[in-house]
């Protein structure tokens, strides 16, 4: 049971959160301008690194806020907690 640092509520059990996948995958400004391949890349392709990975979480059973943090996928240690508005930056 990971202890996930919600930027607002502090560390809480993993069970209170929803996972939002890779961070910084912004919704395209103009999807209609994208080729099918570019759109498919947005829809279906995500990184899956061993090591540091910026990812999104939502404190679903708590303050309901989305935020981004970096997790080392091999050790489950978190760094760089930031609140939601930075997600798409």
């Amino acid at each position: 049971m990971l202890l996930i640092p919600c930027p607002w509520c502090g560390p809480r059990d993993e069970a209170e959160f929803h996972y939002g996948g890779q961070a910084h995958v912004a919704y395209p400004d103009d999807p209609a301008a994208l080729s099918d391949e570019e759109w498919a890349r947005y829809l279906f392709f995500r990184d899956n690194p061993k090591g540091r990975f910026a990812e999104r979480w939502s404190h679903a059973a708590g303050c309901r806020r989305w935020f981004t943090l970096t997790r080392d996928t091999s050790t489950n240690t978190f760094t760089n907690t930031s609140a939601a508005p930075e997600v798409t930056a």
């Binding site: 929803h18 939002g20 919704y27 309901r64 806020r65 989305w66 939601a84 798409t88």
Partner: peptide
């Protein structure tokens, strides 16, 4: 509700 919050908070703040 989660879906709406996700778009609102992460894409259209």
């Amino acid at each position: 509700l989660d879906w709406m919050e996700e778009w609102l908070q992460t894409e259209w703040p």
